[in-house]
């Protein structure tokens, strides 16, 4: 039961799923064209990740280890379907913008990775803390990337239909930033920026990230 806060905090920066572990890149690249898209994608992932971590941790004693992956996938797919239908009902426009990336949360590597590496071997509360932290870390990364892309690509930032900068910032927006190339470049630079900012405490982290990815 100890270390709930540590488990929660872990996903925010130290093991940020997108910027550190480089998991769940597909939605991070695809839907990060505008801040609100990133936000709602993040909310969907927080729900699925916390829910699946909770349920998998609860039933971890009953799952035979040989069929655990299919079991995890069914649990995850159930939560994803719930999110998909709920979004379709209450946020139809956002559901349309996010498109196939809502059902695709089911194959988001973060979710299965946390189920396998964390939820299936820890107590319920820790699993929930981990799910919330990882989900929040994903959301933060997505919101940073999408805010940068939206500002540079459209010259404005829209939150809930309200443009923050009125008629737009005084520069010519680079439309490439909201197009696919901008996604790769922004995310690449975001990962590099986090590497640069956190490099001092330990060069060890860079090494451990390489291992995770390999």
């Amino acid at each position: 039961m100890r270390g709930l806060w540590a488990d929660f905090k872990n996903g925010l920066v130290a093991e940020n799923p997108v910027l550190r572990l480089v998991l769940g890149m597909c939605p991070a690249l695809a839907v990060s064209t505008a801040l609100m898209n990133g936000f709602w994608m993040g909310v969907a992932v927080i729900f699925v990740l916390t829910g699946s971590n909770l349920l998998i941790s609860l039933i971890r004693g009953f799952i035979p280890s040989r069929v655990r992956i299919p079991c995890f996938i069914v649990v995850i797919a159930t939560f994803v379907t719930a999110v998909d239908l709920t979004m379709n009902a209450f946020l139809p426009e956002m559901h349309h913008i996010l498109g196939i990336f809502v059902p695709l949360i089911v194959v988001n590597c973060i979710i299965l990775a946390r189920a396998e590496a964390f939820a299936s071997r820890r107590p319920v509360l820790n699993a929930v803390a981990d799910g919330l932290g990882m989900g929040l870390g994903f959301t933060l990364a997505l919101m940073v990337v999408s805010a940068v892309r939206e500002i540079l690509g459209t010259g404005n930032l829209v939150i809930n239909g309200v443009a923050l900068f009125g008629k737009g910032l005084p520069f010519d927006p680079a439309k490439v930033m909201v197009l696919p190339p901008g996604a790769f470049i922004t995310l690449g630079l975001a990962v590099a920026a986090l590497n640069y900012l956190t490099r001092k405490p330990s060069a060890r982290r860079l090494g451990s990230r390489e291992e995770v990815r390999a």
Binding site: V176, P181, G182, A183, I185, G188, V191, A192, N195
Partner: peptide, 23 residues
């Protein structure tokens, strides 16, 4: 490449340039 850009970041930026080509 600069140490902070090594690995994934530089790969992503290169992918971005290739994406421009595919555009």
């Amino acid at each position: 490449v600069p140490p902070a850009m090594k690995g994934v970041p530089i790969a992503l930026v290169s992918a971005g340039l290739m994406s421009v080509a595919f555009f």
